[in-house]
Design a protein around this nucleic acid. Structure first.
Length: 459
RNA sequence: UCCCUGGUAGCUCAAUCGGCAGAGCGGGUGGCUGUUAACCACUAGGUUGGCGGUUCAAGUCCGUCCCGGGGAGCCA
């Protein structure tokens, strides 16, 4: 007999007849002659109610309690009571794994996010974190779906990297040597290591994506990214997932449009396919969430230059903690003001001063700004950061000197500008930041299954 | 890393001026009931984060360390 999912059982339009269910007991309510079980198997947010006549209960039935796993055979019938349209009249209930009620940490009540973080191995069994996991899965699928539809190829960028200067961020070092290993006197510390040189975990797949974009036209990476920054905020994790498209023969305007289209496609797909799960967040996490998502889809994102952003901030007459100053980077409070108060919707800020942006961003004709863009959204701040890349060898080379980079280490990167160089652009989207935006979660530790942050490597 | 704020029962929290450590939920037992955050009664459950200090007396005051949360920096 094939197993029926809870989703199939609760969303049926006609009776499914005799079925087999497997799942976990969420609650148990005892009545005089029958017991009501709510069964969830992760296939959807809803539980299915199972009615167990005490005549069919065996000796182990007393242990069929919250948290236990069970197998149930029974008849799928219309429910006579309010609250659910279908229920299962059990013919046989088998306890597969019991859960001791005195020590099982999940109760039939609301738990704080802080507490659930300490039991991250069990929190996916709650409504909220189950919904989060399904939304995360759907959003990831939306990414692939979107790019596939636009002719982008999915590129698996390497996780291990030999460049020690990929970006400004601190990197995790990778070694196969034991902590006790001591190199021979005078020898290079990395010479005896696995790769014969220093190895790190990637902080971005961008440079590799650029190489492939200059061959396949348009590509994207979607994988884990690692930053060893000692940042303790609700928006940073040491391991997170990033989406990085890169396309040739395009400019910054197309880059901004791509970021907007991707964001909207992901929101739309989650709203369509995980409506129940999303509704839970609209109900219990943030009441304005669903309305804000509708607004996000309905209007084009605002677009302003960095110079205009400075003007808006100055005209606001706000008493910012950090002074608004042309030439310095926007502070968190500035970004939040723009997205949450001034525009009240996503806003793209473009053409930043060259001095505050990395070497690979394309120098504009004014010689002072670069073709960079940041997508700022309410609730999370910077969701996307991108740019048109500098494709002119001499200018790129000058900018690398300007920022004190060792050009020898980037010989392969510079080769793309030597041989058939082409204008290209791309961006990075923080996947967890997207999930915070779409669920209203205020802490990144709650949108990733097992968060890695400074001092935390549990589970 | 810096600043702010917390840590009391399994969970969420209360405890006045320094004066006998409590409630709700959850657990256990019993009752009632086609129930649905079920309901009613009884019951168990504490090194008040750790260490040190002040005091007749510390959950409460002081020092220090650990941990949580928020803000900042860095960024996605």
């Amino acid at each position: 007999m094939n197993r029926t999912s809870v989703f199939q059982a609760v969303s049926a339009t006609v009776s499914l007849g005799s079925i087999l269910l497997r799942g976990w007991v969420r609650t148990r309510r005892d009545a005089k002659e029958v017991t009501f079980l709510e069964i969830n198997d992760g296939s959807c947010l809803k539980n299915v109610q199972v009615v167990v006549d005490h005549a069919v209960a065996d000796k182990r039935f007393k242990d069929v309690n919250t948290g236990a796993s069970v197998e149930i055979r029974g008849e799928h019938v219309a429910s006579p009571a309010a609250g659910q349209s279908w229920e299962v009249r059990a013919e046989r209930v088998v306890l597969i794994g019991m859960a001791d009620q005195e020590t099982y940490p999940l109760q039939k009540k609301r738990h704080s996010d802080e507490f659930l973080r300490t039991i991250a191995h069990l929190r996916p069994r709650t409504n909220k974190y189950g919904a989060m996991a399904r939304i995360r899965s759907e959003a990831a699928f939306a990414v692939h779906d979107f790019f596939r539809g636009r002719g982008f190829w999915h590129l698996h960028a390497p996780i291990l990297t030999g460049s020690d200067c990929e970006g400004a961020g601190e990197m995790f070092r990778v070694t196969s040597l034991s902590p006790e290993h001591r190199p021979k006197p005078g020898a290079d510390v990395h010479a005896e290591d696995f790769f014969g040189k220093q190895a790190n975990l990637t902080v971005s797949g961008q440079l590799e994506a650029e190489l492939f974009a200059c061959a396949l036209g348009q590509v994207y990476t979607f994988g884990p990214t690692f930053r060893a920054e000692n940042s303790n905020t609700p928006r940073h994790a040491a391991e997170f997932w990033m989406i990085e498209p890169e396309f040739t023969f395009g400019d910054l305007a197309e880059d901004m449009q791509l970021a907007e289209d991707l964001t909207k496609a992901m929101v739309r797909q989650v709203m369509e396919h995980r409506a129940d799960d999303l509704e839970l967040f609209g109900k219990f996490v943030d009441k304005t969430l669903l309305g804000d998502l509708e607004t996000l889809l309905a209007r084009p994102f605002a677009r302003i230059s960095y110079a205009q952003a400075i003007d808006i901030l100055e005209d606001s007459k706000r008493d910012f903690e950090f002074q608004v100053l042309f030439g310095s980077d926007l502070q968190t409070e500035h970004e939040r003001f723009l997205a949450e108060e001034h525009f009240k919707q996503p806003v793209i800020v473009h053409d930043y001063p060259r001095t505050i942006k990395p070497f690979y961003m394309r120098l504009n004709d004014d010689g002072e700004t670069v073709a960079a863009m940041d997508l700022l959204v309410p609730r999370v701040g910077e969701l996307v950061g991108g740019s048109q890349r500098e494709e002119r060898l001499n200018i790129l080379s000058d900018r690398m000197d300007e920022q004190g980079l060792n050009k020898d280490a980037y010989w392969w990167y510079l080769d793309t500008r030597r041989f058939g160089s082409a204008p290209h652009a791309g961006f990075g989207m923080g996947f967890e930041r997207f999930l915070m935006m779409i669920t209203g979660a205020t802490n990144i530790r709650d949108v990733i299954p097992f968060p890695r942050t400074p001092g935390h490597l549990e589970f």
